[in-house]
Structures are given as C-alpha cells and as structure tokens.
Design a protein around this nucleic acid. Structure first.
Lengths: 168, 168
DNA sequence: CGTTGTCTTCAGAAATTTGTGAAGTTAAGG
DNA sequence: CCTTAACTTCACAAATTTCTGAAGACAACG
C-alpha cells in the first residue's frame, strides 16, 4: 500500500482507488447499469468523505462535466446518490449515504410494483385458467411474496447493521 | 377476450399474447436484459406448454433463426431457460420451468459472490481503517448478509408455493 | 453414406447508446 | 444589475450493440 507518484500528500493511493473504482464499476455495468453512472457511483463509494463535486469527479474519471451531469441525474433518479447544495457556494456535492443500499432496494420495490401490474394484465387477458395464464400467475405470486419479504429483510438488515457498526 | 383474426382455432388470442409479451419484455429490458432475450423469455412464459421451438419463436416474434439462437444461448447461460432435444427429431425445444425464478435468483447469487470479492480487494487496497475502506466494508457486509438471507428466503418461497399451488 | 432439416457462426448493416464541445441557464458575489 | 462560476441541455460524432442473411456444422433418416 505505498503511494504512487502523483498521490503524494493526499494520504490516498490514487492508483489503488482507481483500480477499485474501475473494477467495481465494470461489474455494475455487467449487471445492467450505465457505464458512466457506475463509475461515478464507485468513485463516490471509495471517496474519503462519501461526497464529491462535479469537478472532482470529472478529474478523477477523466470525463467532461456533461458526462458527470448525465450520470448524476440518473443516479439521483434511482436514489443512489443525493445532491447537496453547499451553502454559500454555487457548487453542488453528490453524496452516497451509508444506508445507500437500503434506498436502492426500496426503489427496486417500485419497479417490482410495475412488473406486477403488467403480469396482472397478462393473467387477465390470457385468462386465469389457461396454462399460460397460470404460469404468469405463479410468477406474479412470486413477486408479491418477494416484495413483502424484502421489506422485512431490509428492516432486519438495519438492525443487524446498527449492532455491527454502531449507530451510523 | 374475443379471438383476433388469424388466431382462429388456436384457442388463444394471438394479439393479446403478443401485447403481454411485448410489455413484459420491455420492462425486462428496462431492468437491463438484452432485448431479444427478454422477448423470447416472455413468449415462453406466456406459451401454453411453457416450451417452444426455434421456428415457433421466430414466427411469433418475427425475427431470424440467428436472433433466436443468440437469445437462447444467453438465457441458457443465466439459467432462465433449459434446452430439450425432442427425442427422434432434430428440433430442440426451449423451456421455462415453474421454479424458474428460483433458478434465476440462485444464479444471481454467483454474481453477488464476484461482487463481494471485488469489494474485499477494495477494502484491502484502500485500508480497512480509511473512510473509503470503511464505507466499502459496510457495502460488503450488506451483500454478505443479503446472500445468506436470500437463500433462506428462497427456501421459504418454495414451501409457500407448494402450499398455495400444490406440488408443482 | 448421401440427403435434408435444424441450429450455429460470422461478417457486415442498422440502430442504439454514450460522451463531447459549445451554447444556454441559473444564482452567488460584488 | 453586472459578472462569473457552476451546472445543464443539445446536436453531433464515435463506439457499441443488435439483428440479418449466408455459409457452415451437425445429426436424423432413408
């Protein structure tokens, strides 16, 4: 864990940070996230304070302000970062929360709801007694079950986390 | 639920089926799945027997055999369909199982494992005591917790499903 | 062992997505 | 108010993804 050239005095090994950011982002991309959004999110996750300005992000990731803007808009929409206006400044900071994954999963819940609606319509229009309708109904039942269980699971996680990491 | 022209005698409203297939596929695409894979999967889900041949899929979705081939290869890789050789024929059938989502989630588990590995490396190289390292460690803890809970959740689902739908 | 039906692979065309530079908008600070 | 820093929007270029037609491979059937 020695510091690479260029990171002198920062207390952080910029190269190690970048390596982590790029590998984790790549995996998020593989899972379906937009590339730039994934890179921004990973950079925030690895940052000291959990928050960075547009300029900082642009410099670390070597991209234009426009790219940062687009990525941040997406991440805010899916509740994976929040925006903060620095009081007495025209800069904005983008932040990951410690209960970030709680937020993200909660949002996932809304998506599940839309899926369920589509599945319900499918059951209706194919007929609940047709073989296809039955298969879709079982899928629907699974999602409904999952939705309820995920809520409980997240509650348990928060409790578990507080015990493990202290109120954070 | 009247039959549209062209579906006469099939006992299925082709237009209604297609409408469901395309809406559900669109939502899967939104969630990150490849378009053609999503359409094939939705078509199988809505089919009578839960299985279709390449030719049937090509005709219903109006795409080439090559496109079906690519989609099916992907779906098989992520365990969302299985392939069956029809005995005494050179045709293959592609099938969705009733415990399809169990399979899919189990596969998701493998992805989680890879994420965890990357996060562990991140904690190591940033240092477990650095602020960024701590944040990543908390993310790692969440995924580890999630992994264990998902396993239990899926077991409970199977039990719940058997009670609700009878042994499937 | 040749014929034929079925699936796969591959090169390339088409469509989509992604990121940039430049112009536009907003609000802080003088 | 005027200036200016910071973010956003937009049109376009580049890269990537997706699908097709054609050729190839494989296995069933005669």
């Amino acid at each position: 864990m020695t510091e690479s050239a260029g990171a002198a005095g920062t207390g952080r090994d910029a190269e190690a940070v970048s390596r982590f950011v790029e590998s984790f982002a790549a995996q998020l991309v593989e899972a379906g996230m937009q590339r730039m959004a994934a890179r921004v999110f990973a950079a925030l996750l690895a940052s000291d304070s959990g928050a960075m300005t547009s300029a900082e992000l642009g410099e670390q990731l070597q991209v234009s302000p426009a790219a940062v803007s687009g990525a941040v808009r997406y991440l805010a929409q899916v509740h994976m970062v929040s925006r903060e206006r620095e009081p007495g400044s025209r800069r904005e900071r983008y932040r990951v929360h410690s209960d970030q994954w709680y937020e993200a999963l909660t949002n996932r819940d809304a998506i599940l709801k839309r899926w369920e609606q589509t599945l319900r319509e499918g059951v209706d229009s194919l007929g609940a007694t047709s073989p296809g309708g039955q298969r879709i109904a079982e899928t629907l039942a699974f999602f409904e079950y999952l939705e309820g269980e995920l809520t409980k699971l997240m509650d348990r996680w928060r409790e578990h986390r507080d015990k493990t990491f202290g109120r954070g």
